[in-house]
Design a protein around this nucleic acid. Sequence first.
DNA 1: AGTGGTCGCTAAACTGATTTAGCAGAGCAT
DNA 2: ATGCTCTGCTAAATCAGTTTAGCGACCACT
Lengths: 341, 341
Amino acid sequence: MGRNRATLADVARKAGLSKTAASMVLNGREGTRLSAEAHQRVFAAAEELGYRPNLAARSLRTRKTATIAFVSDIVATTRFAGDLIRGALDAARERDHVLLITETQGDATFEQYAIEAVLDRQVDGVIYAAMATRRLMVPAAILGGPVVLLNATSPDGLPSVVPDDEGAGRSVATALLELGHRDAIALIGRNRLKEDDPEVSLAARARLHGIRQTLDEAKVGLLAECFCTEWLPEHGYAAMRSLLSKPKRPSAIICMNDRLAFGAYQALGEAGLTVPEDISVISFDDDPIAAWLRPSLATTALPHEQMGRRAVELLLDGGATEPSLVPMPLRRRRSLAPPAD
Amino acid sequence: MGRNRATLADVARKAGLSKTAASMVLNGREGTRLSAEAHQRVFAAAEELGYRPNLAARSLRTRKTATIAFVSDIVATTRFAGDLIRGALDAARERDHVLLITETQGDATFEQYAIEAVLDRQVDGVIYAAMATRRLMVPAAILGGPVVLLNATSPDGLPSVVPDDEGAGRSVATALLELGHRDAIALIGRNRLKEDDPEVSLAARARLHGIRQTLDEAKVGLLAECFCTEWLPEHGYAAMRSLLSKPKRPSAIICMNDRLAFGAYQALGEAGLTVPEDISVISFDDDPIAAWLRPSLATTALPHEQMGRRAVELLLDGGATEPSLVPMPLRRRRSLAPPAD
DNA sequence: AGTGGTCGCTAAACTGATTTAGCAGAGCAT
DNA sequence: ATGCTCTGCTAAATCAGTTTAGCGACCACT
C-alpha cells in the first residue's frame, strides 16, 4: 500500500533546500524567516511530486496521530449505531481526524484487547460509547489521555454526551395535554430494572420523570401504567391488549419506545380500533419504523448523529465537564389527534 | 495518551542486553542464537515494565500497520451497516488487526479525502464497501495495495464478497412450491432501474432470476408482477392494494424486500385478510422488523456479518479472485402456509 | 576594528522500533 | 601458532518526519 511515495527529502532536494526548510514551509510555521521564493519552490516541488507526509513517521516524533478511537460495547445489535458513528465521522473529518473503531461486546477480555490495540496505535483520544444510554465504569488504561463518554455517564466525572430523555418526556406529555388529553392517558413500558439501575439504563427513569413532572404540573394523573419486561414489539402488543380489556378505554397512549408502539399498533389493529381517531399514540426514539407505520408514529428522536458529532467536538475542542445534554426533537406525525369523547 | 510507556531500550537495559537482542526475542525470531537465559531475561523485563511496542515506530520501519481501512459509501442510512462492520471487526481482531473507518457519502471530494486519509496512515489494505449490492469503480489511488470489495463487484476483477441473491430467489420460490402454491403466486417489487443498472443494484436482477428459474423448472408462471419505484413500505402497501383489487386473489406473495412486505401486511390488515391463512408472504433481507411483524415474516437473510468477516479473510489471508458468494439462509416463519383452496 | 543584531538557511539530534553487518571468544584441526 | 567455524551477542544504519541549535553573510553602530 502506498509504495513509491515521495518523501520530504525528495521535496527538499527538488526545491534545492534542506529537509528542515521543507518541513517548516509545509507546516506553515510562523516566525521562520524563509523567503517567499523558498516557499514557492517548496510548494511547487511538493505539488509536482504529489507529496503526502508519512503519518507514521510524523507521529513518532510528535506523538499525535490525528486518529480517534471509537470504542463501543456493541455496535451491531442496534440500528442507531450507524448514526452515532456517522456523526463522529463527520466531525472528525472536519478536523482532519480519522476514526479507529473497536468493539468490546461487553466482554472484559475483548475490552482489554480493544484498549491495548488503540493505545498501541497512539490515538489522540478515546470516545467510549454505549449503545443504550447508561452509567458505566471506564477502564483505567484509557484514563491517561482525553476521553469522552458517548451515550453514557460515569462516576469519574468524565466529559459525556447523553440525550435529553427527561426533556423528551416533557415534550411527549405536553404534546398530549395540548391536544386536550387529560385523564385517559396510559403509559406502556414501565420497567423497574431499567428505571432503578443506572448501569442498565438512564433513559427509562429520565423519560418517566419528564412525563410525570409535566402531568403533575397540569394536575393530571395517568389512567394506567403497564409494566413490560423488555421494550420489544411483543411486549407492547401484550400491554395494549391488557389495556383494552379494561373498562375505561384510554384516549392516548405513551410508549417508552417505538418498538413497544409498534406492538401496540398491532393490538389496536386487531381490536378494530383506528389511530388516531380512537386512540392517539406517541413514543420515543424515532426508529425508522416510526415513519413507516400507518398512520405514521409521533415520537421524540434520539439525536444520535448530533451526539456522535458532539463527542468529537468535546474531545478535540475541549469544553464543558458536566454531561452535555442533546435535545430530542419531537416528530409530530399522524398518530396524534384530540380525544374523541 | 499513553505517555511514559516503556520502550524497547528500557526493556533491553533492564535485561542487560542490546535492543537488537530484545527485539529479536520479543518477535520470536527463528534462527537467532540467543541463549535460553537471554530469552527469560527479556520476557521478564518486558513483563515487569508492562512493555508494549510503539506501533508507529514499528510501522515506520516495517511498512505494516496491522490496520485495515473500511471505506464505505454510506453507513448511516442502513441498519445493516452495523453487521457488516461487526463481522469485519471480529475477523480483524482474530488476526490482530484493527479497523479504520471512513465514509465517502457517495461524494467524490469526500471519497478523495477518505482515500488519502487512510493511505497517509499506511493501512495494510482497503475494504471498499457499498451499502446496496452493486457494481462500482474503485478509485485508482487505492489500487497500489490489497483491496477487497464488500457487497459490490467491479469491472477490474478485484476480489469481492457479495450475497447470493440468486440462490435466495431460488429458496424463496422453492419454499412456496413445496407448500403447494402454483398458479397464484404474485411478485411485488419489480423495478427496471434496479434490474437493469448494475451500478444501482445487483440484487434485484439476481433475485428475480432465481425466482423465475425455479418457477420455470416447475412450469409455474407468476400470477402478477407489481412494479415499485422504490422498495419502501408505502410502495408495498400500494402494490398490495392494487393486487387485491383484481379478480383473482393471489395465494402467496413474494416481496423483493422486507420493507415492501411490511407495507403489504398493512394493506392486508386493512382488507381484513389474515396471513398466512388467506395469503402467504415471503421476502428478502431479514430486516429486524421481519421478526417483529405479526405473524412473523418468512424471509432470506442478508448475511452481512458473514460478509464482513469474509472480506477481511480475503484481504489478509488471500483467496479466490472470482466473486465470493455468501449464502442467504431462509428464515422459515409464520407467514407461510399451504394455499387455502 | 570590534561588537551586536537580523536574515535566511542547514546540520544533526531525535522519535522507537527493525535489520544488517560484524565482533569477540571458544573449540578444534592443522 | 595459525586458521577455521560456531556461538552469542551488539553497533550502527534505517524508516520519514520534526525540532533544536547554530552558522555565515550582511548591516549598523560605536
